[in-house]
Simulated assay, not measured.
Amino acid sequence: MRTKITTLLATSLLLVLAALLAGSPASAAPGSAVSFTAQARAAGLTAAQAGALQDEVNRDLASLGGKQVAPNRIQLEGATLYLAVPGEAHPRDLTAGTGATPFYDPCAGGGADHLHMCAYSKTYYTGSELDMYSCKRYYVSTWSGPGSWDNEQSDGTVAYMYGPTGAFVYKTPPAPSWDATGNWSSVHSIVNC
């Protein structure tokens, strides 16, 4: 009898441990990568899409810093990075229906809202979006190739782009200004004012 109870307890303990190691949503801490992946799955993403999205978020967190606040959103000091689901043209709200507060994206709709500068990872204002609303240096080192930007900061404000060594690359025309077919290959960071 004692052997059966010991075996039953050991089996139960192993099942609980396996569930924890597998990162089951019920055991995921709020704000953890596992809970964000669960939100992405609840929003209709496949396991492969949710995994690819989290990999991209992890890469951007390592490069930019900040804090992941939603499956496809990183909050930086003075900026927000909205990530498009791999294979999609624009970021979308993956928190709807999960009880989280839906977000408003000032870069959506093909251009920046007034007093914002938006950088887009792809041309024609598509791909992931970096919304810069405070004067600072922001890194886009994970982006490469064709992209775009829209400077709708206060009238006359210019932004500066720098290469990986910190060397000056480009100065935007005064706001309002934009480039639907720019290139991020030589740009490592942006000072938006």
Rank of each mutant, 00 (worst) to 15 (best):
G99Y: 14
V187L: 07
Q39W: 09
G44M: 02
S27F: 14
N183H: 03
D113E: 14
A79L: 07
S27T: 14
P176G: 01
N192P: 00
Q39M: 03
T165Y: 13
V187T: 04
S24T: 05
L13M: 10
D113R: 08
A70F: 08
S189K: 01
S128F: 07
A40C: 03
S128D: 03
G78V: 05
A84R: 01
D60P: 00
A29L: 04
N192A: 01
P176D: 04
G97Q: 07
S27Y: 09
M1D: 10
S134W: 13
R41L: 03
Y138Q: 00
T7L: 15
Y138N: 07
T6H: 15
T3Y: 12
S12T: 10
D60F: 06
N58Y: 08
Y170L: 01
A112V: 02
N72A: 12
N192Q: 04
A79C: 06
T3K: 13
N151P: 03
W149F: 08
K136Y: 11
A10W: 10
G111N: 12
Y120P: 00
G78P: 03
K67A: 05
A112P: 00
R2F: 09
L9C: 14
A50F: 02
S148V: 03
D93N: 14
N72F: 10
T37E: 04
S185Q: 14
W184Y: 02
T172Y: 04
A26F: 14
L61Q: 05
V169W: 13
G23Y: 10
H114L: 11
Q153A: 10
S154R: 10
D60G: 08
S134H: 11
L13E: 09
G44L: 04
E56C: 07
A47H: 06
L21F: 15
A43N: 02
E77Y: 01
L130D: 01
P174V: 01
G127W: 05
T80L: 09
S121Y: 13
A62C: 11
N58M: 05
S32A: 06
Y124V: 11
L61T: 00
V191C: 09
G163H: 07
G23V: 06
E129N: 04
T181W: 14
S154M: 11
P146N: 15
G145F: 13
S144V: 07
S128V: 05
Y138T: 02
G109R: 12
S144F: 10
V169M: 10
P173H: 11
Y104C: 12
W149L: 07
T37A: 04
W184N: 03
D60A: 05
P173N: 02
L8D: 13
S12H: 14
Y125F: 15
G51R: 00
P86H: 08
A38R: 02
T126L: 10
G182L: 08
L20H: 11
Y124D: 09
V16H: 12
L76R: 08
R2K: 15
R41E: 11
K122H: 13
L21H: 13
A42E: 01
K122V: 07
P71Y: 06
S148I: 00
D93Q: 08
G111R: 15
A167C: 03
V191T: 05
G156V: 07
A175D: 01
A29S: 13
H116M: 12
I5W: 15
